[in-house]
Design a binder for these strands. Sequence first.
DNA 1: GAACCCGTGGCAGCTTGCTGCCATCGGGGA
DNA 2: TCCCCGATGGCAGCAAGCTGCCACGGGTTC
Lengths: 217, 217
Amino acid sequence: MTDIVTIRGDLELLTRTEQLFSSVREEFVCAARDLETWSRPAARQVAGGRLRRGGTHRTRKLYSPSALADERGREHLGALADRGAQVRIAATALPHETIVVDRRCAILAGLPAPGGREYTLTTAPTLVGGVYALFEAAWESATDLDVFLRGEQPHLDAGSRTVLRALGSGATDETAARELGMSLRTYRRRVAELLAALDADSRFQAGMRAGELGLRG
Amino acid sequence: MTDIVTIRGDLELLTRTEQLFSSVREEFVCAARDLETWSRPAARQVAGGRLRRGGTHRTRKLYSPSALADERGREHLGALADRGAQVRIAATALPHETIVVDRRCAILAGLPAPGGREYTLTTAPTLVGGVYALFEAAWESATDLDVFLRGEQPHLDAGSRTVLRALGSGATDETAARELGMSLRTYRRRVAELLAALDADSRFQAGMRAGELGLRG
DNA sequence: GAACCCGTGGCAGCTTGCTGCCATCGGGGA
DNA sequence: TCCCCGATGGCAGCAAGCTGCCACGGGTTC
């Protein structure tokens, strides 16, 4: 069975994958240490084209933190996210490029070598399944790009901290307002201000952010 | 080059790996969904022997939470840890058995099939490297067995983690439910379960707890 | 097949949260 | 004094969230 193929050099990779990439049906996942491969002009065209064609498939990209090291990387990842890909950053070093298409075909990249970088393309269910499950595990525990990029700490005035404590206690607005000796309306105004300060769209999100930032009122 | 071999059935696997396993020099890593394969008597002998010979190598074992589902599993993992292996529990489903020896040889197991389960053994650096790096990423974010058993963190299943992420994204229930492909009712059920798991009285409180615990889905 | 269990989803009614609008109040400043 | 301003709070209407109830479908058990 010829379900394992070794590819030598980027050029061969491109010609071989062009057709594959345009036939993605459901899912395209990719784990990589950096943006080296696909940020090159020729490759970009292929990969970009695939995304732009706006299939209904899901695209997931998982990178090491080092992919964000330079401005170019951040830009590129931002652009990917804008085009609908889910982008996450893992806590550790990842392989040099690993791709799984529709859970039936995997591509793994090796190290640069004389005569061109080596790639392995396989459709063996055992291999693809194993790689996919490992990817899934790594993905599951990685951080969303936007969360990763946000690290700032908004400073909150005394009032907001009181409100924060009340919210953290789990009380309803009514109880909290009574305890703080203010009207329901004012309390909610405070809450809205707090959400704005934390740049949160929902109370849950605000709580999460507060927790992450170690704010405790 | 014959650096990829397909193995059919557990018997062949054992005969082939016996020699390999006793030649481990530096590291033996293993990711698996459950304890099926190696908890069988014959296999246990091989694996156990390897460990008992007390090489200087490091042994790392990564399992899905389901490996702890029954008492037998807990015992087995405890025994492994006692014999010096590092055991961790990942948050998500893992492949059906993936092994990497000394970073130079990988074994991936497929699903049970007529004629015996199929295994793939490879020494191709590209494959091994890719699998190893993915394992590393999954390992890095998994929880130590003892910590997991102590249960300071509420055990959230994959579903709860997805919901956690959705909530953390700030989406409304309606959009979140749609994105996750479930009904509004079910989504809210999940949210309610999550709140219960986090022992929270409000979404804000749940978010705060999740943030404090470093849960990110 | 029948009897069940479980997860799901629709519906309904209720609570809680959100916010625009306006009335009120208290404290400067012209 | 009068006016302005910002903060407050009541109200109303709407959006969002919560939960009990019941029905349906897919497994499992007997």
